[in-house]
């Protein structure tokens, strides 16, 4: 920036800050990018490094419950001790592998169920009259106004042995003894799909509302039956929404802790629960950290794959 140019006089405080930044060699643009970067470094990157460090430490009784990684020796030497045993432990004990696989499986099935339920909902909202759309979207988001925990407890009330569903069915004489619904994998699916459904509906809605009605008419005009139109026109054009919605359901579902522990049975092993147990029941911070790191890696891979796929789709259509 040339100093010869007459600068407009900014407000006193902002002018002062802007001048100070300029003297430090920072333009306004850099300053704006700097703020979120600093935030991410302090609240995401550094904690992640700390967790990674703990994952490479050895377990110890005491406080903190792990041995230090760096040690100054008497001979002024620095000893860095890296324990990979925690990660090896995860591989050796099949419990962890099972928990990971189970988490991915449950998250994947939940995502598919959510997609199947959300797609017609999003379609209906996108195709309804414009003045009704906001109200319908409001109804989709409405559950968020109540506490998440409360809603999961409500499902316990529905699914329980003496819950509303069993009582109703028995009252109607359809069944003689209560069905076992709570503390099964089915209940976990119900909980996850119910909780994350809005995250699926909203991106699908965004994709479908942009879909030009005349494309559907053109397809019918060219001889495509409604189902063929769905497969060849509507589905491909809503793919970005499907990918975004699936990411928003699949990723948090993998690490889900509350739903499997409240609605799931003892055998519904999910990685979120294992992590909780390692950390709070066993107080084995290093193993818990290793579990967290591996989970992160498992999560990052599908995110990357999906966002690459999404970019490809968006690029293709633009």
């Amino acid at each position: 920036m040339s100093t010869g140019v007459v600068q407009p006089r900014p407000g006193r405080i902002w002018g002062f800050i802007a001048n100070a930044l300029r003297r430090m060699g920072l333009s306004g643009r850099t300053a704006i990018i700097l703020a979120p970067t600093l935030w991410l470094v302090i609240f995401f990157l550094i904690p992640l490094i700390v967790v990674f460090k703990i994952a490479l430490s050895a377990f110890a009784m005491g406080r903190p419950p792990y041995l230090p990684m760096f040690e100054w020796g008497a001979d002024e030497s620095l000893t860095i001790t890296l324990h990979f045993s925690n990660f090896l432990f995860l591989v050796r004990d099949s419990l962890y592998a099972n928990a990971y696989i189970n988490s991915v499986r449950i998250a994947a099935i939940s995502t598919i169920i959510a997609l199947v339920i959300a797609y017609p909902m999003a379609w209906f909202i996108a195709r309804s009259e414009e003045k009704h759309r906001n109200l319908l979207l409001m109804l989709v988001i409405l559950p968020f106004w109540t506490s998440f925990l409360l809603r999961v407890y409500a499902w316990m009330g529905f699914l329980g042995r003496n819950g509303i569903i069993n009582n109703t069915l028995m009252g109607l004489g359809i069944i003689d003894e209560p069905l076992v619904m709570l503390q099964t994998e089915g209940a976990v699916f119900v909980g996850i799909v119910y909780t994350y459904l809005p995250f699926m509906v909203l991106p699908l809605y965004t994709a479908l509302v942009k879909l030009d009605q005349s494309l559907i008419e053109a397809s019918a005009d060219l001889g495509a039956r409604p189902f063929v139109t769905f497969l060849t026109v509507i589905l491909p054009l809503s793919l970005p929404g499907i990918i975004a919605g699936s990411m928003l359901v699949f990723i948090p579902a993998i690490g889900e802790f509350v739903i499997p522990s409240l609605l799931g049975g003892a055998d519904t092993l999910m990685i979120g629960r294992v992590l909780w147990d390692e950390f709070f029941a066993n107080r084995d911070w290093p193993v818990a950290s290793a579990v967290a790191i591996v989970m992160l890696i498992i999560l990052i891979i599908p995110i990357m794959l999906l966002s690459i796929a999404q970019n490809a789709v968006v690029e293709k259509n633009q």
Binding site: D212, E217, A218, V233, P236, L237, K316, N317
Partner: peptide
């Protein structure tokens, strides 16, 4: 068959 005002070409 119809030719649409907006052409309605399939963008994908």
């Amino acid at each position: 068959n119809m030719m649409f005002q907006s052409y309605a070409l399939f963008p994908h």
